[in-house]
Each structure stands twice: as C-alpha cells, then as structure tokens.
C-alpha cells in the first residue's frame, strides 16, 4: 500500500478561488523518494502544506490525500496533530527562522518525543542527544542546551532534520531543505539527509527547483508547472528524455555548463510556449506568492 496517495487534489485560495494546485495525483510507496521540481510559484510548497495540513485559513481543498490509508483532508485538527511530527514530518526551507528563538533547541526536539509518546523526561534527553549526534552535530550534549541564535545555519538545519527524524516517521516532506544554506554545507546536509532517511527507512517527498539535488537523492521525479503535474517517472528517464517541453526547458536551463562562452543562456521559453499549452498561466496573474493561478469554476 502506498504510504501517500494524492488524488485529484485541487487547492485554491480566497473568495475568488485562485487555483494554486490543480488536479494533482501522485503516490509515494514506503521508502520511496519522490522529487518534486518546478519553478517558484508552481505550487510545490502549497502541495506540501496541503499534505501536512498546514494551509492558511483561506484555502479551499478538493480531492483526496490519504496517508497510511487514512484520509487527511477531512481529518480534525486534534487527530491530524497526532500524526504530524510522528509518522508524517516536514523539514522546512528556512533554518534561521523555523526554530523558536526563545527555547533551547534540545527542548524543542524533546517536545516531539513528549507530544507523541509517554516516555519519561530522563530518557528523552538522552534520545535527543543521540539523534543530534547522528545528524552530525558535534558536541551534541552541549548543543541541546543552546538557543537557536547560538547556532549556525547548517547546525540549525541539522537540528530541524533531527527533529523530523526523531520519531522514525514513514514520510518526510522536505521543502527546499538546503536552499538557505551555502554550497559546502548544502552538500553535507544533503548527504546526511540521504543516510538518515535510509536508516529510518522513511519515504520522502523532496521539493526543489534544483534538478541536480533531486537527481542525487530521488529515484523518481514529478515535474509541476502552474499547479499541475506535467510529467512523472524515473529520475534518469525524465531528465535524459523529457517528454514534456516544460521539463526539457527545466533540464536545459539547469545545464549551464553546456553553454559556450558568449552564447545566450537558455530560458524556459525557448522550449516551452505557455500560451500554447493547456496549463497556461492566467492573464490575470497577480503578485501573490502563488503567481501562476487561475480562476476555477
């Protein structure tokens, strides 16, 4: 059975029902890693927020999201909260702001354990230290007593990854987990994520606009454009033989090393004319975060 099953998911916002995610269907099998690539505003983050149930109040959701066979879109908050952080976790994009600045990081990680189990305080601390140690935080026993502002960006992201893994989830959603980090730290964090996902045998929905990252981490990939999945398949298949012109454009624009000096850099529009395709962005698109939005119904 799929760990995650999304069917005909449509998410729209506000009174005008501006659509950010449009008729999306996808499955993730246990232990599988699915990369979700697309440009800014293509609906990646909205899709992730919908799955974990943290959409803003003005969102409307249609369709179905089932996790371990349980329908999530209609699940009451109290029951959903019991799943969040335990079986379904998330690694966020912004390590600098995703941790509570007024609370020691060890305590924030310990909350996850306390919220989802009845284990005693004493063993929880040791568990947190162990997990911090595993995600490569040197002197983990000291870092648990640090406040977020005392840690570097890379350290904070390791804390966040540790928090996402501490309860041995079956699915981890990673929303551009390395975007805010510099390149050397990025590579380390990514390797860590790779190892730790494997060690707890968690499936992963890995959201990124960086095709290289997705290729190195994910067996499968889905390409999202204007709220729709335009292509889906094995990673090497999709990247080497893209069938959708948008994917071809994404791949070409990511391969800057193939551009000869003096030559113009490729842009998506060289491959893909939005106006000719069914999933065209709307003429009334606004400056909101979800730029490619369309009126539904």
């Amino acid at each position: 059975m799929s760990v995650l099953r999304v069917r005909d998911l449509t998410v729209s916002f506000g009174r005008r029902h501006l659509v950010a995610v449009d008729q999306v269907s996808l499955d993730i099998e246990p232990g599988q890693r699915l990369g979700l690539v697309g440009a800014s505003g293509s609906g990646k983050t909205v899709l992730a927020s919908t799955i974990i149930g943290l959409l803003p109040d003005n969102a409307h959701v249609d369709g179905s999201v089932t996790f371990d066979g349980q329908e999530l879109t209609t699940l009451p908050d109290r029951e959903f909260s019991a799943i969040r952080g335990k079986d379904l976790t998330m690694v966020f994009q912004e390590p600098m702001t995703a941790l509570d600045p007024t609370m020691r990081v060890g305590r924030q990680a310990a909350e996850l354990v306390a919220l989802h189990s009845e284990s005693s305080q004493g063993t929880t601390r040791q568990l947190v230290v162990d997990v911090f140690d595993r995600v490569g935080l040197d002197q983990a026993s000291r870092i648990v007593d640090a406040y977020p502002h005392e840690l570097s960006g890379g350290q904070r992201q390791r804390v966040i990854i540790a928090m996402a893994l501490i309860n041995r989830p079956s699915l981890v959603i990673c929303d551009e987990p390395t975007t805010a980090l510099d390149a050397t730290v990025q590579a380390k964090v990514l390797r860590l994520l790779d190892e730790e996902l494997a060690s707890v045998d968690a499936a992963c929905l890995f959201i990124s606009h960086d095709l290289g990252l997705v290729a190195s981490l994910c067996s499968d990939v889905a390409v999202i454009h204007a709220g729709r999945i335009v292509e889906r398949g094995r990673t090497e298949q999709v990247f080497h033989h893209p069938s959708h012109p948008y994917t071809a454009g994404l791949v070409a624009t990511a391969s800057i090393d193939k551009v000869r000096p003096g030559e113009r850099l490729p842009v998506i529009e060289d491959f893909f004319d939005p106006s000719t395709v069914d999933s065209a962005p709307p003429s009334e698109s606004t400056n909101r975060p979800h730029r490619r939005i369309r009126r539904s119904r």
Partner: peptide, 13 residues
C-alpha cells in the same frame, strides 16, 4: 512566524 508553523508541524494543536 515560521516557528509557529514548525510547532504545528511537530504535532502541536
């Protein structure tokens, strides 16, 4: 705040 979203994501109601 992002940290409120994190709090929700770790299982706080």
């Amino acid at each position: 705040e992002d940290y409120y979203r994190t709090a929700r994501a770790v299982g706080w109601t």
